[in-house]
């Protein structure tokens, strides 16, 4: 329980401070999806399906993946740089010297903060994106509102889509923060080493997210 204040502090840094970028990009991605979906679907006279398209692509794929990529760039790199600098300035060694385990005191709260924050950020991303898509579709392009929401609610399934999307976000949160804290803790304690570790965090976690996304999608939706 004594770790709770540390955890709260870290959730503030990786979660709360990522909220703005997540919401803004969610809004724009939802709006673009609505616009692109409309221009394609209107050719087939089925522009009511825009809601379904926006919601399904956001909930299943885009929200967890794009949120994780932004999270890796926004929070993962900061975690690596912070821990790396602690190592370079021998703060980690001094903690150990006074009998405090740096894994418990420094690494664990940061790891759990990322693991908790990303699923919430992905959910916020999806909601804001759906709202953006609805705004473009209904207000601007004039899709009939009732059909827009009804199609969406008919096609999006809670356990198939929303829960699977949340599971994806949890896995990505685990992987991204894991990579970030490991790269920080394992970096060469020089200024060059820290810069390389920060780059590696973004590259490795982005690749891991995209690769894992394919595997998870194949497992979750492959037999549908």
């Amino acid at each position: 329980m004594q770790m709770l204040p540390l955890l709260v502090r870290q959730i503030y840094f990786v979660g709360v401070q990522s909220l703005i970028i997540i919401m803004v990009s969610g809004l724009f991605i939802g709006m673009v999806l609505g616009l692109q979906g409309y221009t394609i679907l209107v050719d087939y006279g089925s522009e009511q399906a825009v809601g379904q398209m926006v919601a399904l692509s956001l909930v299943r794929e885009l929200a967890p993946v794009v949120a994780a990529l932004l999270f890796a760039g926004r929070a993962g790199s900061a975690l690596t740089a912070e821990i790396g600098l602690m190592k370079a300035t021998e703060q980690l060694a001094s903690l150990e010297m006074i009998g405090v385990d740096p894994l418990r005191r420094i690494i664990a709260p940061r790891f759990w903060a990322g693991f908790i924050s990303l699923p919430l950020l992905a959910a916020v991303f999806a909601v804001v994106g759906v709202w953006g898509g609805a705004m473009v579709g209904i207000e601007w392009l004039g899709i009939y509102e009732g059909a827009f929401w009804a199609n969406m609610q008919n096609s999006v399934d809670f356990s198939e889509d929303v829960l699977n999307g949340s599971i994806k976000a949890m896995v990505f949160g685990f992987v991204v923060t894991w990579v970030a804290v490991f790269q920080g803790y394992d970096c060469v304690p020089t200024s060059e080493g820290i810069s390389q570790a920060t780059t590696r965090t973004v590259v490795y976690s982005s690749l891991a997210v995209l690769g894992l996304d394919f595997v998870l999608t194949a497992l979750m939706f492959g037999d549908l």
């Binding site: 959730i11 979660g15 909930v59 924050s117 919430l120 909601v127 759906v130 609610q153 008919n154 949340s166």
Partner: peptide, 18 residues
Amino acid sequence: FLLVGALALLMLALNVSG
């Protein structure tokens, strides 16, 4: 933040997936 996240999940459940 935690409240907003939980609320977003609830919105996804009730409004988006019906």
